[in-house]
Amino acid sequence: MSSNFLTEPAVAPDLHIPHSPHTVDVRVLDAGTLLHLKPGLFYEPALDGFEAQHVPTYCFLISHGDRHVVFDLGVRQDWENSAPKLVSLVREAAMITRGSDIATLLNEDAERHEKGGGSGPELGIRPRDVEAIVWSHNHFDHTGDPSTFPPTTPLVLGPGVRAASWPGYPTNPESMMLDSDIAGGRPIQEISFQAGEKGHVRIGRFDAFDYFGDGSFYLLDAPGHAVGHMCGLARTTADPPSFVLMGADSCHHIGVLRPTAYLPLPRDGPSLQGLETRAQTTQTTPCPCPGELLASLTKTGQPDRSFFDVAKGPYFLDHEQSMDTVGKLQELDASDEVFIVIAHDHTLRDRMPLFPEKVNDWRERGLSSSTRWLFLKEFEAVIAKRAAES
């Protein structure tokens, strides 16, 4: 075998992304809020030694010339002012560390720009300059506080989200949403992914909507986790083409996506350093290569199957649809043209440029190849525990 993979990679499928000379600028927004995610609740199986994680929630600013769209708003800074039923659930789960919010990030950057005192690429974009807010879905860690944007700023939603969300609290005391999210007559645009309708295209096996109408930014129909769940796909360079895939909550750990038949586990490499040593400290017999140790942890014990599935239970509305969406994403993940950022992938946090910097040059930076297997280091304790027990 000529590659460093444990098994020969399968040929990645053709995604058939339409050609376009048009691009958008993509900036990753991280407002600093951390969520406490427990293995077994959001992805399974739980592995002995694999601990709960504190993860960010990534949002995105997509700029098409002087047109700006925000993809997700994260957690509202004053989350205690959310609907009472939601507040009760968050407090019970003790799952949040407070951060800022997206409107504040934009305003602070704009103030630096206006004062001319910043040292970075300040943009001067305020919430009033954003033409639309796209919600990937209607969960609290993505919906933020739309009232921090003008009431004329539309909400762009996936199919069925409006009916599933409103009326909110206080009109409906049991709602997780707020009436104030759409107060003031805020316009709502619900995306249709029906074939034959204006803007409909196919991206890989996804039904997609061409948001700007020129192939620069697509919304993808990615159901399963929640009603109307969507991903985003932004063209960051035209020739050669490259894309950033905004995975939202298609999964909550990158080990749900990897490895695959297209991206099997590596035999060794920088991301695996320390795994073999960790295991050898607890046994006297020679250890296999790090990749083989890790393969024993995958769902099937094989190097071309992912570590986790999305969990069955309340956090994924439709498990079968969720797994189908994961399968479609895995095909995009296999492409060298696509850099996937799921909303809660903490391994990327200190590696990729954050707002106000652009992430368009991700390929030149080698971000995809250098971060693809970083999550494997999280399994050191699992390997050591199993080695000690063998």
Rank of each mutant, 00 (worst) to 15 (best):
S3N: 14
F5S: 08
F5L: 08
T7E: 12
E8N: 13
P9N: 09
H16Q: 12
D25C: 11
L37V: 15
K38I: 05
P39L: 01
L47Y: 07
Q53I: 12
Y58N: 05
G65S: 05
H68Q: 04
V69A: 03
F71L: 14
Q77V: 00
Q77R: 03
L86F: 00
S88I: 00
S88C: 08
L105T: 06
E114N: 04
G118K: 08
G120K: 12
I125T: 01
D129R: 07
W135H: 15
S136C: 13
H142F: 12
H142G: 01
G160C: 10
A164G: 10
N172K: 13
D181C: 02
I182N: 01
E197L: 15
G204E: 05
R205P: 04
F206P: 00
D210P: 14
F217R: 05
Y218R: 04
C231W: 08
R235E: 13
T237F: 09
P240Q: 12
V244F: 05
V244E: 07
L257K: 14
A261D: 14
R267D: 14
D268Y: 07
P270T: 10
Q280Y: 07
T281V: 04
Q283H: 14
P286Q: 03
C289S: 10
P290H: 08
G291I: 15
S306Q: 08
V310E: 03
G313F: 01
P314I: 14
L317P: 05
H319P: 15
E320P: 03
S322T: 09
D324V: 01
T325E: 07
T325M: 09
L329G: 03
Q330R: 15
Q330W: 03
E331H: 05
L332K: 00
L332F: 15
D333K: 07
I342G: 02
D350R: 06
R351G: 04
L354Y: 07
L354V: 08
P356A: 06
S368G: 15
S368Y: 09
L374N: 08
K385M: 05
